[in-house]
Simulated scan of single mutants.
Amino acid sequence: MPTVISLINLKGGVGKTTLTVAMAEFMAAEHGLRVLVVDLDPQTNATVSLIHEQEWRRRNMRGQTVLNVFLDHLSKYRIFSPQEAIIRKVSNIQGGIEGLDLLPSSIDLIEVHDEFLRASAALPVNPLHILGGALRESLPDYDIVLIDCPPDLGLICQNGLMISNYYIIPTIPDILSTYGIPQIVNRIERLKSETGIPIQPLGLVISKFREQSNTHKAQTPLLRLNAHRDGYQRVLETVIPEGTRAAAVMDSTLNFTSLHDKYGYDNPYRHYQSLTEEVLSYVRK
Rank of each mutant, 00 (worst) to 15 (best):
P42Q: 08
D72W: 11
T3N: 11
V14W: 04
N267P: 00
N126T: 10
T195H: 08
E189A: 12
V21S: 02
I175T: 12
V283C: 06
T17E: 12
A122N: 14
G203A: 04
Q273D: 11
P104K: 04
I206H: 07
I8K: 05
E278V: 11
R190T: 13
N60H: 09
N159S: 06
E98D: 11
L225G: 00
H73N: 14
S177W: 07
T276Q: 12
P82F: 08
N165L: 07
I163Y: 15
V35C: 04
A121D: 15
R118G: 02
V66F: 02
I86M: 11
N92V: 03
T253C: 03
R136N: 13
L155R: 08
R245N: 06
R234T: 15
I79Y: 02
G180I: 04
F256M: 06
H271S: 13
I156Y: 01
D39G: 05
T178C: 14
R136P: 00
L19I: 12
V279M: 06
G95A: 07
L131M: 15
L123E: 13
E98P: 02
S177K: 00
L128D: 11
M61Q: 10
K217Y: 09
P127S: 00
A24G: 14
A119V: 13
I168Y: 07
T257R: 07
R234F: 03
L161I: 15
T178V: 11
R234I: 14
E137I: 06
R190F: 13
Y272Q: 05
D101S: 09
H113P: 00
T20P: 04
I144C: 11
A46T: 04
S105R: 08
T220W: 10
L191G: 00
